[in-house]
Design a protein around this nucleic acid. Sequence first.
RNA 1: GCCCCCAUCGUCUAGAGGCCUAGGACGCCACCCUUUCAAGGUGGAGAUCACCGGUUCGAAUCCGGUUGGGGGCACCA
Length: 504
Amino acid sequence: MSEPSTTPDTRPVRVRMAPSPTGPLHIGTARTSLYNYLFARHVGGTYVLRIEDTDQARSTAEYESDIIDNLHWLGITWDEGPQVAGGDDRGEDGPYRQSQRWDLYALEAQRLLDAGLAYHCWCTPDELDEVRRQQERDHQPPRYNGRCLNLTDADRAALEAEGRKPALRFRVPAEKVTFDDLIRGEVEFDNSLLGDFVIVRADGVPLYHFVVVVDDEAMLISHVIRGEDHLSNTPKHIALIRALGYTEPRFGHIPLILNSDRSKMSKRKSQTAITAYREQGYLPEAMVNFLAFLGWSPGTEEEIFTLEELAARFDIGHVHKAGAIFDQDRLDYLNGVYIRHLTDEQLALRLRPFLPSALDDSSVLRVVPLVKERLVRLADAVELVAFLTETDDEVASRYDPEQLVPKGRSAADAARALELAVAVLSPLTDDDFAADVLESRCRNAAEEAGWKPGDFFRPLRVAVTGRTVSPPLFGSMELLGRDRTLARLEAALRRLGALEGSPA
RNA sequence: GCCCCCAUCGUCUAGAGGCCUAGGACGCCACCCUUUCAAGGUGGAGAUCACCGGUUCGAAUCCGGUUGGGGGCACCA
């Protein structure tokens, strides 16, 4: 087994995140980005963002924007790459989109070809498929059989004459490869099991395993921190690094985020797009805190950390080896914690985009104290305050005698409670219509009627909000205002009256 | 199939040979508070540290094997 020609650790710390814009920012990519960010910030290194868009057929500008926007949303910033700090591309080693770096790849591919370390391959997909199937039948590792390695010049000329374009295959040295993973320690692979792999497609497009190695060298990356799904690909990269005479970076493979069935987290089984969580009103602070703890902990019992605190504490050596299931309940809990930590003004600002524009800014601010302790996600506020923007008729259409009437009471009882409420509230002016006044009047009325407050309030709540679950009743009435509150109480009363008039 | 990685309550985790009759948090259950729902408070159930062997005076922690799970093996990334 051969040793790398250059020692790692001689470079200043530079890490990179290399998302592929073939889909919206994925939870797993976000977490890998976060760990790279924390690692870089912890040691004062440089963080590079590189867009891996060699697969032009699947990459789109929309996905690239989604990835960049959501990374920004999470608070993750990079020193070099596209839209640094939300502005222009910046950095000395750009461009930072692989689709703009093809000259470099072509040059490096030619070097390998000239040195005899790579060769043209004319095999068709069908032929390769057949070989693979045969190998499976023979219980052999599926790998390229080296057919085009032994072509004569005449063979080659004949194939070229047919007008066929060759792919370029890397000639993998049959040797054992060892590396010291930052998280897993010493790992050994036998590259003789690998088979020569394609590094440039027949149409001239360079492939991932090749470009990742070329770019990491060109961008002087010192530590490659990525998902465990790349662990088995690392020996390929190391073989390429050696063939090209590059410096071998340190590798660190972080555990995967898992579906509840412990398979790699996927769109099929989980919600994987960061955007989706953002749209439901998860806070970026909660998301970051949650993601950081999926595979890492500071080794104490503290669990609420800001991004800055995480960067100060983060230690790659404490990252777990085993995968972690994405636990929605825990995310929900953390999100609630972060929502409650916000000031009313901050929460109002965050809630603004989720609430209807019919609710003006000052109303949003007034609504905050009523909903703050009840929110898991920001979007939950929509249903909680819907009674404010719904018309009286819309609310009335929700009235259901089952809900209007408290357990163990009759419709007549419920009507009586509504009548009493109207009686004690209607004398109030609009200015006097404040929660504490409303509450004391209604409590007195309940007491005089011999009702438990909870039972008495039930028909009022349903009348005013159209729902059995609502923000605190009297604060809700205050926000609604005198006239609308009374109109709804009376509408509910009519509903109950109609009920009594009809046969049970 | 081949190669590699992994293994502490349902889940996220603490644990770096004695501090562990295994701690915290989420979730769950009960009670308290209470105008609904939440939030908050108190308490509880929940892990023979996957299994088997070894090393050691002593192992959740070190070693080997077994089992189970996962990942990778593309002219995708």
